[in-house]
Design a protein around this nucleic acid. Structure first.
Length: 417
RNA sequence: GCCGGGGUAGCUCAGCGUGGAAGAGCGGCGGGCUGUUAACCCGUUGGUCGCAGGUUCGAGUCCUGCCCCCGGCGCCA
């Protein structure tokens, strides 16, 4: 005699036989209740079951070709833990994005979300595993900060004991502090951007996987990123086969994600875009539409190496052999998904750094601690930040990034749960 | 911030052009049915037509203002 616990996803009544699709952490299990196998009392319980009622069934497993996953649970005893109210607010038809946001607390029970967040969990586990295996020390950065690092316009302002403060946009500057202690560090923390973005790839609050290492250059950085992403893809492909199938993502596609990723320079990208008929010149920005064109034909991520310094934040180092170009690398997800991570070498010269901070209209006084790092044992170093939500978005082949996280924070979304 | 689309039953939507008794499917509820798997069949329930004004004998439909949601651009991870 075994028991199975869970929630009623669907009930199908046929007179003397009732099928229950039971939902729990293992997925969906078909349970069969025959009138002849249970007491009259239990039969009545089965008849009154409503969608999402929580129940405990007693019985045994049986191989059955007609059951969805090759086996079913034959019931001979029923305990109703809670009889759910009717009607359940979410039906079996598709729902509008609005309903899925307003009923998020219930929508996350759905099979699709269950699969997505299981994959996300594996992405996080594999990330941590990679950094541990490669000698990186995990640090905990602050969430409340007083300095901007990505431009002042996108800061969420908060009141910190009557002192103006902000929610962090990135933990990078704090990781840079910690490389002088551990040389190789990483963190996983939320970042906040008050961007009034209405796109399928922006969240106001996102989980940011960041790493920073002393002595590292651009080539070594790319090697780190491609190994990390490949490790994550391999882990997901191996451990989430059921979930990937449900999401229409072939695990084979993820297993093909292996180093090296293609490197394409900023200038090469501009040339390719011109060949594709885009009206663009060297010195222009490569935007979302352009990234789509660059990545739609690929099935592996690509690196976009170098970018005009004028579009980049103050901490970006200039390329040695190309004046006006930043030593940056963007990791673009394939299949049209686009930017997933950005990184590069950091400016380690104190004069240049102060000049760049002024250039952005910031007061160097506010960055005294950051500038100090270039005063006492400055080292060449590099790092990157990757959006976990964007990585999940691509790996799960989602349309909109709001489905890559259980509780998305978006610009202009009515109800927040 | 800009451009476009939308808001009608618990859910997904039709109705609006040309004003005249608020509809369908699904869900819920009741009944039937021994293998379904979006079960099926019969019956039934269900409305602040986003909000506020206006025009009109009469507004879901026309006009004005506001709110909210969706898609896209820019920005970015």
């Amino acid at each position: 005699m075994e028991t199975i616990r869970g929630w009623v996803l669907k009930k199908r009544e046929h007179g003397n036989i009732i099928f229950i699709d039971l939902r729990n952490r293992d997925g969906v299990t078909q349970c069969v209740i025959r009138r002849e196998n249970v007491s009259n009392e239990d039969w009545s319980k089965a008849e009154e079951l409503t969608q999402e009622s929580s129940i405990i069934l007693r019985g045994g497993w049986r191989l059955e070709d007609r059951a969805p996953r090759g086996r079913e649970f034959v019931v001979n005893g029923i305990e109703i833990v809670h009889l759910a109210e009717t009607p359940y607010p979410l039906g079996k038809k598709e729902h509008s994005p609005e309903t899925l946001m307003e009923k998020r607390h219930l929508a996350v029970r759905g099979q699709r979300y269950q699969a997505i967040f299981r994959v996300r969990s594996e992405i996080l586990r594999a990330s941590r595993e990679y950094f541990i295996n490669n000698g990186y020390v995990e640090v905990s950065p602050p969430i409340i900060v007083t300095t901007a690092c990505e431009g002042g316009a996108t800061l969420f302002k908060i009141d910190y004991f009557d002192i103006p403060a902000y929610l962090t946009q990135s933990s990078q500057l704090y990781l840079e502090i910690m490389i002088f202690t551990y040389e190789k560090v990483w963190c996983l923390a939320p970042s906040f951007r008050a961007e009034k973005s209405r796109t399928r790839r922006h969240l106001a609050e996102f989980w940011h996987l960041e790493a920073e290492a002393a002595w590292m250059n651009l080539d070594e950085l790319m090697k780190l990123e491609e190994e990390l992403v490949s490790h994550i893809c391999r882990s997901v492909a191996e451990k989430c086969q059921y979930e990937l199938k449900l999401l229409n993502r072939n695990p084979e596609e993820l297993l093909e994600i292996e180093p090296p990723f293609k490197r394409i320079s900023y200038e090469e990208a501009i040339m390719e875009l011109k060949r594709e008929g885009v009206n663009i010149e060297i010195g222009d920005e490569i935007g979302g539409d352009e990234e789509y064109i660059l990545t739609k034909k690929h099935n592996k991520p690509i690196f976009l190496v170098g970018y005009p310094l004028k579009y980049k934040p103050f901490y970006v180092k200039e390329l040695k052999d190309k004046s006006g170009m930043g030593a940056t690398v963007d990791l673009l997800a394939p299949e049209g998904y686009g930017e997933m991570a950005t990184g590069g070498e950091r400016e380690d010269n104190i004069e240049k750094l102060i000049e760049r901070i002024r250039g952005e209209g910031f007061d160097p006084e506010n960055y005294d601690w950051y500038i100090d790092l270039r005063r006492y044992g400055s080292v060449p170093h590099a790092g990157f930040g990757m959006g976990i939500d964007r990585l999940t978005w691509w790996i799960c082949k989602l349309d909109h990034i709001r489905d890559a996280t259980p509780f998305p924070r978006l610009y202009r979304t009515g109800k927040m749960i």
